[in-house]
Design a binder for these strands. Structure first.
Lengths: 157, 157
DNA sequence: ACTGAAAACTAAACAGA
DNA sequence: TCTGTTTAGTTTTCAGT
């Protein structure tokens, strides 16, 4: 990344790198890791939060531990591509908690959804109860993930 | 979710729900939100961490703010599906920081990668420098996301 | 940008239901 | 065993230099 283009210096980058790995670091420890006084560090973090570089802090829950062992990618084609069809679909998708991601894809009017389910049977239920009934759906194709080889929330800085 | 099956009670679930939205809540405030004394709450959180329900805490960095405006899903077919080919591929993929996710997909020996880039040109660079040279790659198809309709790290509990 | 003090928070020990 | 109370030690926050 060329960090100067987005208004950061190398210490800001370092702060983001560290907090992306451990969002609960105390300011005291963070400041040590980036070689800054605690107060200077604290002010930088506040600025990064205020300016939206840090969108928030979250706890990551292990999906397998709570029984969500299955990830499915669903490709959906809509029957039309008017703004109403698209935004009606998007509003409806946003209400399904099992859908973690929804992307409008280039090329055709296709959406790619990332869905988490307990198992294949549970996905069938989600499919029936939530996906099949989405407004404007023309085709719908599901691909199951067998194994998550890599999964990170940390962006390269 | 049927939380009892995974060894949680309704308060544990509530804690996970809350921490998935705000991972930096103080124990004092968390305990208020879940109607528990601070110490009881604190012990539950520690248990959830120790038992791996909480995999960690992270700061979420806004990809657009740091210039990563483009998400691309890449579908890769390997030339073989022996364990060596697969694990060689997986080891190599894990070293590319631009690849946020890599899934082994059911059906064929296909992988689905989620890649973040600054723009299409930057993706072309990543493609050339990192993806094309991955061991065992047979075919490689890229789909660009035009718009992130929904993006959450919070699992439904 | 640093210092120091007040306020808030954490984490452990102890006690009761 | 689970919850609540107390307490000592940290950390955060903010005013002053």
């Amino acid at each position: 990344m060329n960090y100067q283009e987005v208004g950061l210096d190398s210490i800001d980058c370092r702060i983001l790198e560290v907090l992306q790995k451990d969002g609960r670091l105390s300011n005291a420890e963070l400041s040590e890791r980036v070689n800054l006084s605690a107060s200077a560090c604290h002010r930088r973090v506040q600025r990064l939060e205020k300016d939206g570089f840090i969108a928030g802090y979250v706890a990551l829950v292990d999906p397998r531990k709570i029984g969500r062992k299955t990830t499915v990618f669903v490709e959906i084609t809509l029957s039309g591509q008017s703004d109403e069809v698209l935004s009606g679909f998007e509003r409806a998708v946003a209400l399904i908690p099992d859908v973690l991601e929804c992307h409008l894809m280039a090329g055709s009017a296709d959406y790619l959804l990332k869905v988490v389910a307990e198992d294949a049977e549970d996905f069938a239920r989600i499919h029936r109860r939530h996906l099949a009934g989405l407004p404007g759906v023309q085709t719908l194709q599901s691909s199951f993930s067998l194994k998550q080889v890599r999964q990170t929330t940390a962006l390269p800085i």
